[in-house]
Computed example of a mutant assay.
Amino acid sequence: MTGAEYGTPAQRQQLLRVRGRTVAWAPPLLLLVAIAVIDSNTSGEFRIISWIVLVPGIAAAICGVKGTAAFAVLALVTYIEVDTAWPHQDQTGLPDFILVAVGGALATTACAVRVREERRMLHMRDVADTTRRTVLRPMPTPWASLEHAAVYLAADSEARVGGDFYDIQPSPHGARVLLGDVQGKGLPAVDAAAALLGTFRESAYHDASLAVVAERLEVRMRRHRQYVADLGGEPERGVERFATAVLVAFPPPGAPDDHIEVVNFGHEPPLVAGPSGVRPLPPGDGLPLGLGGLAGPRSGVPPVRRVPLAPDETLLLVTDGVTEARDADGVFFPLRARVSLAVSTDPAVARPRPLVELVREGTLRHGAGLVDDTTIFAVRRAGQPGQVRRARQGQNGTT
């Protein structure tokens, strides 16, 4: 998930603190002293004391309302003291006095407006963060006997969540994993993602068959779309909302099975990375969630595929923010080649956390900027591969 960007109130507060104490007062105070000293040591033909009006203006940008008001008063008093020390014929007089007084009042007012808007923005950010944690809930690691790592990058630096979604749901039937990308942007996409995740979390826990979980997701997407239409919502650009997704089922811990089950709803096929290399899973031959009806009433859900996944292999799932990232020449980000090179150089890169960091850095460096929300999600069985194998051998009665 993205943190606070440079230039936000939180960032400014951190930059203007030394050993936990604010030093926001230092720049305007130094400017005030500098102007007073320079004006006192120049000829009467070059007076800069009226520049002191800049002091409350700078304070308004970095200090609180009380601090700005204090600098406005201090600037006015300093102006009076410095100006009256000059001979009468060299004094700037009433016009500049009015300038400094009015400038201080306007700066204090501007500071009050700034502080109010910053508080409002921080409140809205808290609301957005709460929404993000609801849709993309934090998960402990390991979770459901899976080691995992994820990063979400918003194309809009001010956004906290978008149409990308992912989750792990433990169940009596093994861990279920879901990653997807809702078509479109903004709150409607977030709403659809939340609806799909809610269905996934319930169905993945209760239903033993991954095909049933997949069918419930397809039905949920259609119901959500109908609900939005009944409320009077209109599809974006005349296209019915849908979502590409990958649904994965890991066997329960200790189960004598090195296979996983995968249902691909028109999404980019995941990569499997391990000491033996990098390979893609079979491409998604199903339609996205919400469009299954186009294939006929009996073909709306893609088939469940069983694919091998060794204990020391990691499943890497990404959204199109990675696969569609382009450089200045329009060349797509070579995800598989980049991961293959890194894993062949250092097999430890195949673990979830370093693998996610590798793809994140590669995506950001490849393009001039993100053109779409980007999610990178990696999962593998928790524990050392040798321990997993021994547990399975014990289950089979082998030595």
Rank of each mutant, 00 (worst) to 15 (best):
M1Q: 04
G3T: 14
Y6S: 10
G7L: 00
P9R: 00
Q13F: 11
Q13N: 13
R17W: 01
V18K: 07
V18W: 15
V18S: 06
V23Q: 04
A24H: 07
W25I: 02
L32D: 00
L32Q: 02
I35Q: 04
V37L: 14
N41L: 15
E45D: 15
F46W: 08
I48H: 14
I52M: 08
P56W: 11
A59M: 10
I62N: 12
V65Y: 05
G67M: 12
T68M: 06
V73S: 06
L74T: 12
L74Q: 06
A75S: 15
I80W: 14
I80V: 13
D83K: 00
W86C: 01
H88L: 12
P95Q: 09
D96V: 10
F97P: 03
I98F: 11
L99N: 14
G103I: 03
G103A: 15
E118G: 08
R119I: 01
R119S: 11
R119N: 11
R120S: 09
M121D: 15
M121F: 13
R133P: 04
P138T: 01
T141C: 07
A144H: 00
S145E: 15
V151Q: 15
V151W: 12
Y152P: 08
S157K: 15
Y166K: 00
Q169W: 04
P172D: 06
G174K: 01
A175H: 01
A175F: 05
V177S: 01
V182R: 10
A194C: 09
L196P: 08
E202K: 03
S203R: 12
V213D: 12
E215I: 01
E215L: 14
E215K: 14
R220K: 14
M221F: 08
R225C: 07
L231H: 11
E234P: 05
R237V: 04
A243W: 10
A243D: 11
V246C: 09
F250Q: 02
F250M: 06
P253Y: 02
H259T: 15
V263A: 02
N264K: 07
F265Y: 09
V272Y: 12
A273D: 05
G274K: 09
G286M: 07
P288I: 01
L291R: 12
L294I: 04
V301M: 09
P303I: 01
P303Q: 13
R305T: 02
V307D: 03
P308Y: 10
L316R: 00
T319L: 00
G330H: 07
G330L: 03
F333L: 05
P334A: 00
A337S: 15
A342R: 08
D346Q: 04
R353K: 13
V356P: 08
V356A: 05
V359Y: 01
G367F: 03
G367E: 06
A368V: 10
V371P: 03
D373H: 12
I376M: 07
V379F: 07
P385A: 03
G386L: 04
G386W: 08
G386R: 10
Q387M: 04
R390N: 13
A391W: 04
R392H: 02
Q395G: 05
Q395K: 11
G397R: 02
T399D: 15
T399C: 11
